[in-house]
């Protein structure tokens, strides 16, 4: 009993670390499965970073569309990233986090475009915003915003 109390910090860390790893991985896998499924579903909506519509475009209506998602890191990712930011190198645990957030944001933007009956989004811009900051006690996550102009054919 004494031993447990003395090493409470370490024990708590271990529990959080394992919980973070298991739950985080499960969450990530589930999220990726849902992203892939919806990406197939929305494949018909084309996304471009071009500033101007293709020359062949006939009369279109333009609507500003946007999508955003805030994805939280898990305890495991946080610890791994902490280690890497000490030694340097690629932080793969964060790469997947940002990838998920960006793809989710694009999907939500496409959802809005589909609701407008648009088949194309042009001039797409991304913006990343880190929530939380450096303080250890703060909530950590990343917001990804995607926005662009949806073009829908007039009179269709």
């Amino acid at each position: 009993m004494d031993l447990i109390l003395q090493n409470f910090d370490l024990l708590l860390f271990a529990v959080l670390f394992i919980t973070g790893y298991v739950a985080g991985r499960w969450n990530e896998r589930r999220h990726y499965a849902s992203i892939r499924k919806r990406e197939d579903e929305f494949a018909g909506i084309l996304v471009f970073t071009n500033r101007f519509p293709p020359p062949s475009t006939t009369r279109v209506a333009t609507v500003l569309v946007s999508g955003s998602a805030v994805i939280s890191e898990d305890f495991f990712k946080g610890v791994v990233a902490g280690l890497y930011s000490f030694f340097g190198g690629r932080i793969r645990s964060y790469e997947s986090l940002l990838d998920r957030a960006r793809r989710e944001a694009v999907l939500r933007m496409k959802e809005q475009a589909r609701a407008q009956g648009a088949g194309m989004i042009i001039n797409v811009k991304f913006q990343t915003f880190a929530i939380g900051g450096r303080r250890a006690s703060s909530v950590k996550g990343v917001e990804m915003l995607a926005y662009g102009t949806a073009l829908s054919p007039v009179g269709a």
Binding site: S68, S72, F129, I131, K140, G141, E143
Partner: peptide, 26 residues
């Protein structure tokens, strides 16, 4: 919101309350 988000910070996943908050602000 922060308390719940603190829990989410352990297991990961989307912080829906934050997504909504930033969307509303925008």
């Amino acid at each position: 919101k922060d308390l719940f988000a603190g829990l989410k910070n352990i297991i990961g996943g989307e912080l829906k309350a934050y997504t909504e908050l930033l969307k509303e602000s925008r």
